[in-house]
Simulated scan of single mutants.
Amino acid sequence: AAKAPAATSTPAPAPGTSARPKRKPFFIVSSDVVGLEVRSKGKYSQTLGTLSGLIIDSSSGQTLYAMIDRGGFLGLDQYKVVVPFQLVDFTGQWDAPMLAMSAFKLEHAPRMTDEAAEDLLQNPDWRRSVAAYFGVALAEPSKATASHAPKAADKSDATSDKTAPSKASNAETAAERGKEIAQTQCGACHTFNKGGGTRVGPNLYGVYGTKIAGKPGFSFSAALKKHTGVWDKADLDDWLKSPSTFAPGTYMT
């Protein structure tokens, strides 16, 4: 009787490699993906929001961020977060963007409004905070974009001016700079004018010297309510340097 052919087996993949065939690269058209539902990865996948836009460096053409709209029923309490684009995974399907993070992580991600978008994107400190929050490399603008930045003043120009600025003018300049930084980095979530409304966070007019977590009309986290003092310079410095260290469990990022 003829012998049956010897059984053959598929060689096991080498350690550290996947048995899955590599997916072919494909192209994504922005107009097709804007408006798609973004979901979390994993067994218990859930809806995270809606992909509402892509932020592109005009000089390099590189897509830097994805904007994701989140919010309540019928758009009530809707807000926008930004996510580094390299974290968005289309898993081989252009119509199925996914993120390897929880809804809680995305809820506390850096936020953006359409009105503040330009100022925030031009601010390296804000871009650095986004990178740090998501644990990715900082998305730097291209060299072509950076080349348009104003050059540092020549030291000889500064020393040649015999008229030193007064302390008053220095203080005024520092105050204006502080106002600019606050509006740029915090304006997406806070208002600063007297009687200003609540956004993601409370109005900050006259907050210095007031009770911590005591601003009327805003629901503060239990973590921040544990602090019973008033906002002084030391506490404000600690709070702004690291909210999660000052009040572990706070909503502030």
Results as ranks from 00 to 15, higher is better:
residue 43 K to T: 13
residue 249 G to W: 08
residue 104 F to P: 03
residue 185 Q to N: 13
residue 153 A to F: 12
residue 6 A to P: 02
residue 174 A to N: 12
residue 119 D to V: 05
residue 125 D to H: 12
residue 18 S to V: 13
residue 225 K to C: 07
residue 38 V to M: 03
residue 119 D to M: 08
residue 202 P to T: 03
residue 71 G to F: 01
residue 173 T to M: 08
residue 131 A to E: 03
residue 107 E to P: 01
residue 35 G to D: 05
residue 87 L to V: 05
residue 17 T to S: 13
residue 212 I to F: 02
residue 80 K to M: 01
residue 125 D to G: 09
residue 1 A to I: 15
residue 16 G to H: 03
residue 228 T to Y: 04
residue 75 G to H: 00
residue 143 K to L: 14
residue 130 V to H: 00
residue 121 L to P: 03
residue 141 P to K: 07
residue 154 D to K: 03
residue 191 T to Q: 07
residue 22 K to E: 15
residue 178 G to P: 02
residue 20 R to A: 15
residue 148 H to M: 10
residue 235 D to R: 15
residue 194 K to Q: 15
residue 61 G to I: 01
residue 157 D to K: 12
residue 181 I to T: 09
residue 218 F to M: 01
residue 27 F to S: 14
residue 248 P to G: 08
residue 62 Q to D: 13
residue 160 S to L: 02
residue 125 D to C: 06
residue 172 E to K: 12
residue 179 K to Q: 12
residue 204 L to M: 09
residue 141 P to D: 08
residue 139 A to K: 15
residue 182 A to G: 11
residue 29 V to K: 08
residue 177 R to P: 02
residue 245 T to A: 15
residue 185 Q to I: 12
residue 116 A to Y: 05
residue 78 Q to K: 08
residue 136 V to F: 04
residue 137 A to G: 11
residue 41 K to T: 14
residue 167 K to T: 11
residue 110 P to F: 03
residue 26 F to Q: 00
residue 183 Q to D: 10
residue 6 A to M: 09
residue 9 S to R: 13
residue 94 W to K: 10
residue 224 L to S: 06
residue 15 P to V: 06
residue 180 E to Q: 10
residue 173 T to W: 04
residue 139 A to M: 15
residue 240 L to A: 12
residue 45 S to N: 08
residue 16 G to A: 04
residue 15 P to F: 02
residue 206 G to V: 02
residue 40 S to I: 04
residue 123 N to H: 10
residue 26 F to L: 00
residue 174 A to Y: 09
residue 59 S to G: 09
residue 240 L to Q: 14
residue 197 G to M: 09
residue 239 W to S: 09
residue 154 D to G: 05
residue 163 T to V: 04
residue 125 D to I: 12
residue 183 Q to N: 09
residue 133 Y to V: 09
residue 54 L to C: 06
residue 45 S to W: 07
residue 46 Q to G: 13
residue 26 F to R: 00
residue 146 A to C: 07
residue 102 S to I: 01
residue 67 M to T: 07
residue 201 G to C: 07
residue 106 L to M: 12
residue 182 A to T: 10
residue 191 T to C: 03
residue 92 G to I: 01
residue 174 A to D: 15
residue 150 P to W: 05
residue 242 S to P: 05
residue 162 K to R: 06
residue 135 G to K: 07
residue 43 K to N: 10
residue 80 K to N: 12
residue 49 G to Q: 00
residue 197 G to P: 03
residue 20 R to Q: 14
residue 79 Y to P: 00
residue 82 V to K: 04
residue 85 F to K: 07
residue 202 P to D: 03
residue 54 L to R: 13
residue 156 S to C: 02
residue 176 E to Y: 05
